[in-house]
């Protein structure tokens, strides 16, 4: 056995480098191939939606060729719809609207859901009881029907459609938030924060919420996907903003001609499918990267 030199034994080991939780998650995420594929698809779709319209300048609302031209038979590669409008131009322009509605509705879903869930979980007792009954009320309403009623009452504008989607889909987020708050509010560090003078507002937003964030981030990401699907569903039934071109609306418009031009519904359908798939892959990847129990799975 050799003795350690006293001088060396006494020097403290250098403190470990601080790795922020965000960076850790990114490192895990990067190793997940399907999630990275999803991220690239998603970024590509967003990029095309952002800069596409200025590069491919065909007006998606204008008749440019013979109606119902199949793909590859004209200069308009994806063919035309029943009004002779260019499908490719529609796809490129529709992405913006679809993604905007998806994101806006998801933000609303998370805002309502997290607020209701946080209040219910933090205060408990009568507040919890009341808020959970309200949540149940929204849960038992048929989502699509309720959203249709809202859109029809207030008119099919982009904002109203997003709000309608947000209003019908916040319940599961609220329940998840409540469950997380119930769990975290009993933690020692919450008690410790209280003992140094943290008020309720600070406990909710700055102490408990950041600790409850991981599952909520995943749900928020996935709810963009479901909002996009929901918007497509509403548009398919004819409830879309007449002034905005969205993928769902393209499917809805071309629905009557589905036997003559399968391409009219296929391409926007594929676009929606790809986007939602990419979002789901990213969401799953985030879940794996954030949830420490799944970390060892690689």
């Amino acid at each position: 056995m050799t003795l350690v030199e006293p001088s060396r034994a006494r020097t403290a080991p250098p403190p470990p480098k601080a790795v922020s939780p965000g960076r850790q998650v990114w490192q895990m995420f990067r190793r997940n191939h399907s999630a990275m594929a999803g991220l690239f698809i998603l970024l590509a779709i967003i990029l095309i939606s952002l800069v596409g319209p200025s590069l491919y300048t065909v007006n998606p609302r204008e008749m440019v060729w013979m109606p119902l031209t199949p793909p590859g038979q004209s200069e308009y590669v994806l063919g035309t719809d029943y009004l002779g409008r260019d499908l490719l131009a529609g796809l490129i322009n529709g992405g913006r609207v679809t993604i905007t509605i998806g994101v806006f509705a998801a933000v609303l879903t998370v805002l309502i859901g997290v607020t209701v869930g946080a209040m219910a979980g933090f205060f408990g007792g009568r507040v919890d009881n009341l808020l959970m009954r309200v949540t149940e009320f929204f849960q038992v309403l048929p989502n699509l029907l309720f959203a249709m009623v809202v859109v029809m009452l207030f008119g099919p504008t982009l904002v109203n459609i997003s709000v309608a989607i947000g209003i019908v889909s916040w319940t599961s987020t609220a329940r998840l938030t409540r469950a997380e708050f119930l769990r975290i509010r009993e933690m020692d560090y919450v008690k410790a924060e209280r003992s140094i003078g943290a008020g309720n507002a600070r406990l909710i937003w700055k102490v408990i919420l950041p600790n409850a964030a991981p599952p909520l981030i995943v749900v928020a990401a996935l709810s963009i996907g479901s909002a996009i699907l929901f918007e497509a569903g509403l548009s398919f039934l004819g409830l879309s903003d007449p002034n905005a071109m969205s993928w769902g609306r393209m499917i809805g418009d071309n629905r009557p001609y589905i036997l003559d031009s399968s391409w009219g519904v296929t391409f926007p359908g594929l676009a929606i499918f790809l986007t939602v798939l990419a979002i789901s892959l990213v969401g799953d990847g985030l879940n794996d990267a954030i949830n420490p129990k799944l970390r060892q799975r690689q």
């Binding site: 933690m187 560090y189 003992s195 140094i196 003078g197 950041p210 600790n211």
Partner: peptide, 28 residues
């Protein structure tokens, strides 16, 4: 509660039994 919050941590502080779980894991 407001009066207490002004006293807690400022005039009267507490150190708990469990240092392993009494710090908030998401902040430095």
């Amino acid at each position: 509660e407001e009066q207490l919050n002004r006293i807690r941590g400022n005039e009267i502080s507490m150190v708990f039994q469990e240092p392993m779980t009494s710090l908030n894991p998401v902040y430095t």
